[in-house]
Design a protein around this nucleic acid. Structure first.
Lengths: 175, 175
DNA sequence: TTAACCCTTACGATGCGTAACAGTTA
DNA sequence: GTAACTGTTACGCATCGTAAGGGTTA
């Protein structure tokens, strides 16, 4: 029967996380030693493991509480909801990215090592051995495999919406 | 001289946001009416506008406080730092995405069209005509031209720091 | 004895939203 | 008089990290 520190180490979490889970009733050790130390049973450890996996998926503890106490298998509904949220959050970050790039526009000549531009990107692909024909194949494949990601990527290079549309059309249309 | 509610409406923010900005000293109205109402001057409104833009970029209020009080133009350093953070955050969300999809394995058709992963990226480059040697040249050139952007990009694919380090080392070392 | 555990409790961080109670303005 | 403003103050949220002050174990 591990104590709180042992279980934390094994699970790759911190002691204070387990203290918190105990406080909010998410994971209460099934026993206490005579000196009032928390003793976690195997069942407790397994419960923690499920909690941990859901946390890695980004589910809030409130939702996890329901999942681990009521449902036996993975809850499809909650995970699909989370999937939608993740996409929203990524979208929000992409919009922030666009704002930052706009604010940085111009001031970063070739100085900024961090700001990626279309010109720089083309240069890199060329150096890797892709000529214009190859780059077109690249766009076409990108568009085919993950159109939304393709759009996100083009926006992250600082292209405006019109140019993004143009490129996607060019990559989508055969010929 | 608008009152707090008017300015909030104009700026598209809430009254409580402006109250908060006042409390933390980020934006204090330059005047008060006889009945102690906040009166915001044009200068106040402009300050708020700068604050708002930086907020849209995702900068924390602490950083914004420095930017709007000391710097005149946009601060390149803070924005580039934020750019790196954004990519990290996107990467974290991609890892969550992968976890969710794994938990949903089987129950969901193939991974959504929006999900960008390392594997998919490699596939696209391959389809464009880059073999492993070409992909290595691509990494090398990326690292040479914009090392920070290279790192940001890899993180945004959801790779963990160790793998990013490995790839960058592999691309940085000549032979 | 000493290091490395453990206990409980509380505060901090982030950026507001909400509520409560009261005064002001149109 | 009444609605729609305004003021201040305080609590809530989510998920822990950190610290304080003091027992327990090997």
């Amino acid at each position: 029967m591990p104590t709180i520190g042992e279980l934390a180490r094994r699970a790759g979490l911190s002691r204070s996380t387990l203290l918190y889970y105990d406080r909010i009733g998410l994971l209460k050790p099934s026993e206490r030693s005579v000196s009032n130390y928390r003793r976690y049973s195997d069942a407790d450890a397994e419960r923690l493991d499920r909690i941990r996996r859901y946390r890695e998926a980004g589910l809030p503890l409130k939702v996890i509480r329901d999942l681990v106490s009521t449902t036996p298998g993975p809850a499809v509904a909650a995970l699909e909801t989370r999937l939608g949220q993740i996409n929203e959050e990524i979208g929000a970050l992409r919009r922030q990215q666009a704002v930052v790039l706009r604010l940085l526009a111009g001031r970063v000549g070739r100085a900024g090592r961090r700001v990626m531009t279309k010109a720089r990107w083309v240069e890199i692909l060329e150096a890797a051995g892709l000529d214009e024909e190859g780059r077109r194949r690249w766009h076409i494949e990108f568009e085919r495999q993950a159109p939304e990601a393709h759009q996100d990527f083009l926006l992250s290079l600082g292209l405006d919406r019109a140019e993004v549309r143009r490129i996607r059309k060019w990559a989508g249309t055969n010929q």
